[in-house]
Simulated assay, not measured.
Amino acid sequence: MLSILIPVYNYNALPLVNELVKQCNTCGINFEILCQDDASNSGENAQNQIINSFSNCAFFINDSNLGRGKNINSLAQKAKYDWFLILDCDTFPAQNSFIQNYIAAISESKSIYFGGIVYEDKKPEQEQLLRWIYGQKRETSAVLTSNLLIKKDVFLQHQFDESVTKYGYEDLLFFSVLKKNDFKITRIENPTFHLNLETSQVFLNKTKTAIENLFFLYQSGKISTDDSKIVKAFEVLKKVKLIRFSNFIFKKNQDKIERNLLSEKPSLFLFDLYKLGYFNFLNSCKVSKTLSVSRM
C-alpha cells in the first residue's frame, strides 16, 4: 500500500514517525516508514535509532553524504509498496486525517499528489524572520517534494537527478522532468507544517548554494527558461545587453541588501533581486574565466 520515505539530516524525526505510525494504524493499511540520515554525524541520531524499534519502520545512516535527491532515490530502492509518500524530516501533519486524506486520494486513479506546506502563524525571533516570511509568502503556494505522494513506478522511472548533490533546486529539476513526460501534479488540501526555521544568515548562505545549483542546471541544459523565473529574467537581461550593468549594480548594493535581509523587516522583493544578482554574478565569473583562458 504505502511506503513513507523520510530523508533526514541533523534532525530528530522520531516525533514525525510517531504521528505517522499512529495515523497509519488508525487507517488499518499496510505501510512502512523508511528514514535515512545523510551522514550528518548528528547527536539527534540517538533518538532516531528508536525508530528501528517500531513495527514496519527503519532508520538508516549513510556512510557518506549523498545530497537530498540521491538520498531519496536510495530510500526508494529499499521501499516495497506501490505508493511513495515523500516527507521532509522537519515537517509534521497539520491534520489528524493526514494519512486518511492521501488514502482517499489514491482511489482517484491519479499518479502524483502534493498536499501543501504551511507555517505556524506565530512570528519568530528576528534572526529567523527571513525564512518564516519567505515560507509563508512563497512556499505555501509552491509545489515541492517535501509532502508528495507519487506512484512507485512513476518515481522509479523519473528519479531525482543525482548530479545535484548540493542544497537547492532538485525539486525544480524533478518536476521539470515529470512535466516533460506529461505527468500532472494534483494539489490537494492536505498540508504539513514546516517546523525547522533556520536563521536568516544560514538561509541566505543556503540560498547562494541553491543559486549555484540553479546556474549549474542552466549551464548544463537540464532546465529551460520556462522552469525558473530567475533564468527567465536573466535571459531578458542578456537579450537587452544589461547583464554587465546589472552585475555592477548588484556588487555595489550587495552588502546593503544583505543587511535588509537580516533585519527585522526583510524585503522579499530585495531577496528576489539578490538571487537574480547572484545568478548574474556567477555568469560573469564564468565569462571572465573563459576570457582568461582564451587570452593565454
Score class of each variant (00 low, 15 high):
Asn65Pro: 07
Ser97Leu: 10
Ala233Thr: 04
Asn62Thr: 09
Lys180Trp: 13
Trp83Asp: 02
Glu127Ile: 11
Thr199Met: 08
Ser146Ile: 12
Asp38Ala: 04
Asn52Gln: 07
Ser109Cys: 06
Gln126Ile: 15
Leu149His: 11
Gly115Glu: 09
Phe31Lys: 06
Arg68Ala: 04
Lys80His: 15
Ala94His: 07
Ser64Lys: 14
Leu204Val: 08
Thr207Asp: 01
Asn12Arg: 06
Val293Lys: 07
Lys265Phe: 06
Gly221Asn: 14
Ile29Asn: 05
Gly277Met: 00
Cys285Gln: 09
Ala210Ser: 15
Tyr134Arg: 14
Glu125Cys: 09
Lys229Gln: 08
Asn101Gly: 12
Phe271Val: 00
Gln23Met: 07
Tyr11Met: 07
Ile133Tyr: 07
Val8Lys: 00
Lys251Cys: 10
Ile150Gln: 04
Ser109Leu: 12
Glu198Thr: 14
Leu217Thr: 01
Gln36Lys: 13
Leu34Val: 10
Asn52Ile: 06
Pro124Gln: 03
Tyr218Met: 06
Tyr169Leu: 03
Phe250Arg: 01
Asp82Asn: 15
Lys206Phe: 04
Lys206Cys: 10
Lys70Met: 08
Ser97Lys: 08
Arg138Val: 13
Gln100Phe: 13
Asn213Trp: 05
Thr192Lys: 03
Lys229Phe: 01
Pro93Phe: 05
Leu197Arg: 02
Asn247Thr: 10
Ser246Trp: 01
Glu170Ser: 15
Ala39Trp: 02
Phe279Gln: 02
Asn283Pro: 02
Glu198Ser: 13
Thr140Glu: 15
Gly115Ala: 10
Ile51Ala: 02
Asp153Glu: 15
Ser288Gln: 12
Leu291Glu: 09
Asp90Met: 07
Met1Cys: 11
Ser284Glu: 08
Phe216Asn: 08
Pro7Ser: 06
Tyr167Arg: 11
Asn283Thr: 02
Asp161Asn: 14
Val177Pro: 02
Ala233Ile: 02
Asp37Tyr: 04
Cys285Asn: 13
Pro191Gly: 10
Leu149Gly: 08
Ser163His: 12
Thr192Ala: 12
Ser246Asp: 02
Phe31Pro: 03
Ser53Leu: 04
Asn62Val: 07
Asn101Lys: 09
Thr26Met: 08
Thr165Phe: 05
Leu178Glu: 09
Tyr167His: 14
Ser3Arg: 01
Asn196Met: 07
Ala46Trp: 00
Phe92Asp: 04
Ser141Gln: 15
Phe203Gly: 04
Leu262Met: 04
Ile99Cys: 03
Phe160Asp: 02
His194Gly: 05
Glu108His: 15
Phe216Thr: 03
Ile51Asp: 00
Ile211Glu: 00
Asp121His: 15
Thr290Pro: 03
Lys208Ala: 03
Glu32Met: 13
Glu170Tyr: 12
Ile6Glu: 05
Gly43Leu: 10
Lys289Phe: 11
Leu87Gln: 00
Ser267Met: 10
Arg138Glu: 06
Ala13Leu: 03
Tyr11Pro: 00
Asn253Phe: 01
Lys70His: 14
Phe114Thr: 00
Leu149Ile: 15
Asn65Ala: 13
Leu5Thr: 11
Phe234Trp: 03
Ile188Glu: 05
Asn283Tyr: 09
Ala142Val: 09
Ile150Tyr: 05
Ser74Thr: 13
Lys289Gln: 14
Arg131Pro: 02
Tyr167Cys: 10
Ser224His: 02
Leu268Pro: 03
Gln77Ile: 05
Asn65Ile: 08
Pro7Cys: 06
Ser176Lys: 05
Asn10Ala: 14
Asn280Val: 07
Lys80Ser: 10
Asn96Lys: 06
Lys206Val: 09
Leu156His: 11
Gln157Tyr: 14
Phe271Lys: 00
Asp121Trp: 12
Cys89Pro: 00
